[in-house]
Design a protein around this nucleic acid. Structure first.
Lengths: 186, 186
DNA sequence: CCGGTTTTTGAGTATACACTCTATTTTGAG
DNA sequence: CTCAAAATAGAGTGTATACTCAAAAACCGG
């Protein structure tokens, strides 16, 4: 082991370059050559530090996933409002990384470590939203709470999706409206 | 022009092969070679009938888009229930083509004829849903109606998205529940 | 400043892709 | 039957991709 400073700095540069590229040109445009050019590194150095191209992308996406949650370490339930605002910040703050997140989630069947990360993350978020909803709406049964959490999350993803389709779309206000109206008993 | 029967049959075989491939292996797996192998055609024949690979994919996606609408030619407004059921049928009936539809919608910035088709189709659907909602809820203003239409469509897309992530997810019942609860005044 | 370790280089490999081109065969109207 | 137009074959082109490897350079504890 005993890594040198140079290698550590290079690794950081590569991750940053990958993040910027995912933001600017999307997943398809984020080629190995593009990453290496932007990080000012040759292919050999890249593979000295990363297993594969996906390895670098995974780094970035995992960071993005972490960024969507407001207080990851905390056990106390957040309020639904807080959770929704955190999601809005995630989407509007890093739209292109959010697009990558959604794209990867959608990209494939059941395999691939990227897709697995996204799936696990989704489960955690449903649990998180469920906790908040249960706290604020004690009249709902457990199943109803889960259904509501899934619907709210689906709506947020779907609105984000539309926002990516039409840049002028007022995502934040639609998201806030949707979050309140999804809670009534159906 | 004066096309021969052989060419017409070959074209149909290519479209069908493309549709099946999009369903089985997704957009990335639908390569020219795969299409030609499945349609039992050589590359030269393919390009005698189609401008490009995207041209063939576009054929399939446009068919899928048409399939999502219950009565495309009709002017009378459908009921919201009908529209939601049509969407459910679309997603559960041709899940992999639906995935392609969502994927293409999400895939990129503002260019590409595929992305444009999807965008235009989304606008038409919002109009369609708005009409239904306005008919059933006269107490809502125009802006509120549009907002509700966009939210319902977003929720349906988002739920479809989750369903693709977790095959066991009960998409139809969630979709029906969501459609009713999204209509209250917020 | 020595010397093992880590890092870097950059040409090179293998592969996959969409697409082209020309020669050949097939079609079907007159 | 004829023959021009349509359809087909399939080898070939060009380009882009992720990734490898052996040699050279930089690093840093002692």
């Amino acid at each position: 082991m005993a890594r040198y400073q140079a290698g550590i700095r290079t690794e950081a540069r590569i991750v940053e370059a990958t993040r910027e590229l995912l933001g600017k040109v999307g997943l398809d445009g984020t080629t190995l050559k593009a990453i290496c050019d932007r990080a000012d590194v040759r292919a050999g150095s890249f593979y000295n530090l990363f297993e594969s191209k996906d390895d670098a992308v995974l780094h970035v996406v995992k960071d993005a996933i972490r960024a969507v949650d407001p207080h990851p370490a905390q056990d106390a339930p957040d309020s639904l409002k807080e959770l929704v605002e955190a999601y809005i910040s995630f989407i509007t703050g890093q739209p292109e990384v959010a697009r990558v997140y959604l794209k990867i989630a959608m990209s494939g069947a059941t395999n691939g470590s990227l897709a697995n990360s996204v799936r696990r993350h989704h489960e955690r978020r449903v649990a998180r939203f469920s906790l908040a909803i249960a706290g604020e709406h004690p009249e709902l049964t457990d199943d109803e709470v889960t259904a509501r959490a899934e619907i709210i999350l689906a709506t947020l993803s779907g609105l984000a999706f539309i926002w990516m389709l039409k840049p002028g779309f007022d995502f934040p206000s639609r998201a806030r409206l949707a979050a309140t109206s999804s809670l009534v008993k159906g």
